[in-house]
């Protein structure tokens, strides 16, 4: 067993888990945070994507014991109170989800993508950067639209912040 300390969505959590526990199982089974999903066995579908120390990763292929003291962000931690994250809003507005199972992973991948590229995205780049997330419902069309729209919001916010100095 390993005592894992980590910050999840800004909250410090502590959890004693068997050493072979995967990060996604720590979240789902031990912390009761079921927003992060498991969709495959081979780290290809991306449904389990979370942001670990600022980077999108597949939590089904990381040992919980190996991420001690990390900062973890999951889909549950994006909205602030009733106020949705821009990416969440964009997914809703553009109908970027249907069954919603891949959605938490999609959204986390998108949040990280927009951050990494500072909102400078075009369709080709979005489609390329999203290759590690599978969706079976949307044909990706509206997901791509949603991410481009959220990226635009990001740029606008960034410009506004710059203008304010």
């Amino acid at each position: 067993m390993t005592l894992v300390n980590l910050t999840v969505n800004g909250q410090e959590r502590e959890c004693d888990v068997p050493d072979g526990t995967l990060l996604v199982h720590l979240l789902r089974d031990h912390l009761g945070m079921t927003g992060t999903h498991v969709g495959c066995d081979t780290s290809q579908c991306g449904a389990c994507t979370v942001i670990l120390n600022g980077e999108a990763v597949k939590s089904c292929t990381i040992l919980a014991a190996s991420v001690g003291n990390a900062e973890l962000q999951t889909v549950e931690g994006l909205a602030e109170g009733d106020s949705l994250h821009d990416v969440q809003t964009a997914f809703r507005t553009h109908h970027g989800l249907q069954c919603g199972f891949c959605t938490p992973g999609m959204i986390m991948a998108a949040v990280n993508m927009i951050d990494r590229h500072k909102g400078q995205l075009d369709e080709t780049l979005v489609r390329h950067d999203l290759e590690g997330n599978l969706c079976r419902c949307t044909g990706y069309h509206n997901i791509v639209k949603a991410i481009l729209s959220a990226a635009e919001t990001y740029r606008a916010r960034h410009q506004a912040a710059m203008a304010q100095g």
């Binding site: 992060t36 999951t74 889909v75 549950e76 949705l84 969440q88 809703r92 919603g100």
Partner: peptide, 8 residues
């Protein structure tokens, strides 16, 4: 579904 509160 976008906030992780789905009931799968």
């Amino acid at each position: 579904l976008i906030t992780g509160k789905g009931r799968f």
